[in-house]
Amino acid sequence: MGMYLLKTTAFAAGLALVAGSAAVAGEDSTLTINGDLTISTAAAAPSHLENIDEVVSGWLFRTDETQSLQMDDFDNPSFVFVDIGIDLWEAVDGTEGKSCSSCHTDGPEEFAGLTATMPRVDADGNLETLTEIINRERVEKMGAEPWKYSKTKMASLTALIGLQSRGMPVNVAIDGAAAPYWERGKELYYTRVGQLDIACSGCHEDNYGVMIRADHLSQGQTNGFPTYRLKNAKMNTTHARFKGCMKNIRATPYAEGGDEFKALELYVASRGNGLTVETPSVRN
């Protein structure tokens, strides 16, 4: 028995060393976009994080080629979707004959800073996501159909709105009315799931910085979402990503837009408090 303990400790120490240093070793931690917007891709961890001292963007873990795509908006494939978002912003839809721009006459710029604070608790005490706000506006103000949670239209408009916060620090509220949702999200983050019996924390907290087969594990931060993935050539929402990670460990994902993923979205976003919004980012 003693032998096992000894070996376990030795491995644990080895892993900690790798996880702690490899993530940013030899990397320039500054991301410059279009030659003028400078984004810090690392920040001191928010005080609620118990096991990590520094939070780092997923951008740092990508290859030089993938990183460079995010350094110029002309190269960044997300902007095809941002353009779709601009069209949707102007598009009249629904029984009221209105578009977003009918009411929000200052343009999407009105929402600078919004994505940095999402999700948040609304006046009725419910946790709401940007996606839900957009659908509420569509239904209540425009008399239009709600969009599917992770499909192109929604992902494109949230990318356009998220872009207005690019360069601002992530700052979601976790206290007061948000506290119970945040606690629920935290519980989900640390719960082992699936046939492989692994929690989010097993990969993104205990092992970021190391390779898991062909993938370089990041901290699983959401400051770049929605994100364009080279793998599926489209914008990917946070909930779609959570779903993918759960399926990889052979776990039944929670529903996109459901209470569990909303709570997880809040908790994961809060792990990135202090990081900079990079939306719309590029990943592999």
């Binding site: 799931v193 492989l196 019996d197 759960m246």
Partner: peptide, 14 residues
């Protein structure tokens, strides 16, 4: 993962 474990797992995929 435990490779020969078939119970006590939470939310295994269908």
């Amino acid at each position: 993962p435990g490779f020969y474990v078939d119970s006590g797992l939470f939310r295994p995929l269908g």
